Amino acid sequence: MNTTNHYNTIVIGGGPAGLTAGIYLSRAKLRTLIVNEGPVGGQMVLTHEIANYPGVESISGYQLASIMKKQAKAFGCAIRSNILISDVELKGETKQVTLSDGSSYTSDSVILATGGRSRTLGVSGEDTFKGKGISYCATCDGDFFTGKEIIVLGGGNSALEEAVSLTKYASKVNIVHQFDHFQAFEHAVEEARNNPRIDFILESSITGFYGDEKLESVDIKNLKTGDMTRFKTDGVFIFIGYMPNTEFVKDKVELSQWGEIIVKPNLSTNIEGVYAAGDSIAKRYRQVATAVGDGTIAALSASAYLHELKTKKQLTTA
């Protein structure tokens, strides 16, 4: 075994869950490596404002991610980001993670904190106009639509909260949602309904995107009557949920029918020494605060497992 590349725990994913796990494990003097395929922070960095994180009145997702990263590194956590994972081996006492540059790392335990990604609508023209009028990130692209009329598709917390945020730029925001009610928290619904720049197109969905070099219009279908309307718009922001980033472990740990990692109360998976946390696990609520809680539980559970493992080895060699 290459001891230089061996860790007590490898955390796969550098969002709030993964960073929290890294903080707890490193602070407990456990050799820890966080591996992340994108920039550190995950989906959190795309959030313009986080105002419901306990103890913090208001902060951007990017700022919060930067603080968490700094904390983890200060405790000695190693971080590798913006690199692809080629393969993982989770069974057995020694786990292994291989990266796209050919480097390989081993560990006694693994925490899967792979997060999720924006769910796409999957209709005609969506791929064509991604980045040309279609966006999945209000923080990234809101400023491009200053003074313009746009659409927000979705009815959950993200859709309504980002719709309100986008009114800082857009002259008008039309929320298109497939149901006659919203799945968001009541305060988010009220804030959107009380905003004079927001209109609602309910029981409807977008069935196509059209334009020349950039998006110019969409087809909106009334799901109750079947009527179709060609609707002119300068942009569409799609917030219809996230898909868990679990494809690379689909044959390695137990997943739900939706691809979420199934965990026990201590966030252990069906594989000994492997834990999971954050948006990739099967759970109801997905917030930064819940991801942080998951990361904490997974780290403490992994720590307990590592302690038991060390004790067993000492008894065996005694």
Rank of each mutant, 00 (worst) to 15 (best):
G133A: 10
A318Q: 12
K70V: 02
F144Q: 13
G76F: 03
V45S: 10
E93S: 11
K221Y: 06
V35R: 02
K312G: 00
L99S: 06
L30P: 02
D143K: 07
Y242A: 11
S158G: 14
P54C: 14
L202F: 06
S171Q: 06
H177D: 13
I240L: 10
Y305S: 02
L202D: 04
E213T: 14
T233I: 09
V164D: 12
G133K: 06
A318W: 07
E190N: 11
G102N: 08
D199H: 05
G133M: 14
L153S: 14
H307I: 11
Q287N: 13
F144R: 10
K95W: 00
M68Q: 14
N195W: 09
I83H: 01
E190V: 14
S100R: 09
A170L: 06
E213I: 14
N2H: 07
S217D: 09
G259T: 08
Q257A: 11
F179N: 12
T225E: 13
Y285V: 14
V110K: 01
Q178L: 13
Y7H: 03
D143C: 02
E247G: 04
G102A: 04
A188S: 10
L315I: 11
T269P: 01
H177T: 15
F179I: 01
T229H: 12
E260A: 13
V249S: 00
G42H: 10
S26V: 07
A65E: 08
